[in-house]
Design a protein around this nucleic acid. Structure first.
Lengths: 112, 112
DNA sequence: TGACTTACTATGTCTGTCGTAGTATATTTA
DNA sequence: TAAATATACTACGACAGACATAGTAAGTCA
């Protein structure tokens, strides 16, 4: 079984996280499960990588956090949710364009 | 003009270099020009990135170096040429497989 | 002759990733 | 009901690859 090294993914963790948050605000644990599920178990983000991405992206103004209960009745442990800002959405789209270009470039060096 | 950030490329510089060296042994300056040319000017590898990749890959046993003159008459300044080892070729093919997988995974998070 | 190209080496900084460890609540299972 | 497991984080330090900066030195061309 081939595994994806994180060095390859590096620089795209933020994009993946933003992609998920653009559908709906979410929090760490849920996002990590979604990344695993969307990638068919092929990529599992490390906890520390994920949480440090939150810190970085919030500092960069790409996401905003808010603390809330899991359900409206106020049950369960409070979580830190994140939502994407306008700047974050711009950044995401920029990264998507960049990805198309990168893909083309790397492809030229593969299996030649 | 969109530019490719090196964080994205990170982890694929070695693969690009090996791809070029598999066609024929080469040296720093020539490889950097080839990367630029093959990528249609979209990616220009930094000198220090390139030379440190040589050091790393030689240490890892993926490439071997030899010093030679540019032409058989012994004119011109000597250069350090590199050729790919058997281990390096294996590594290259492994990275190519990994790339196909990575591409699929990242693609799932793009423009959704 | 002087600018420019070629062909490097040395050194130190930065950033994202990740290993390790710890805290604490909530839920499930024996 | 106690123990195990899942959830939901924070703190800290190490590491590797990329890169900025700087310098050396030979060869080429105007």
């Amino acid at each position: 079984m081939i595994e994806i090294s994180s060095d390859v993914i590096r620089g795209y963790n933020d994009t993946m996280i933003l992609s998920i948050l653009l559908k709906a605000p979410s929090y760490g644990y849920e996002i990590s499960k979604e990344i695993k599920q969307i990638s068919d178990g092929k990529y599992v983000i490390k906890e520390t990588t994920l949480y440090s991405a939150f810190t970085r992206m919030e500092k960069n103004g790409y996401i905003e956090s808010f603390v809330a209960n899991p359900d409206p009745e106020g049950n369960g442990k409070k979580r830190t949710y994140y939502r994407v800002t306008a700047a974050g959405e711009d950044y995401y789209h920029q990264k998507c364009e960049e990805w198309e270009l990168t893909k083309e470039v790397i492809q030229k060096f593969i299996n030649n």
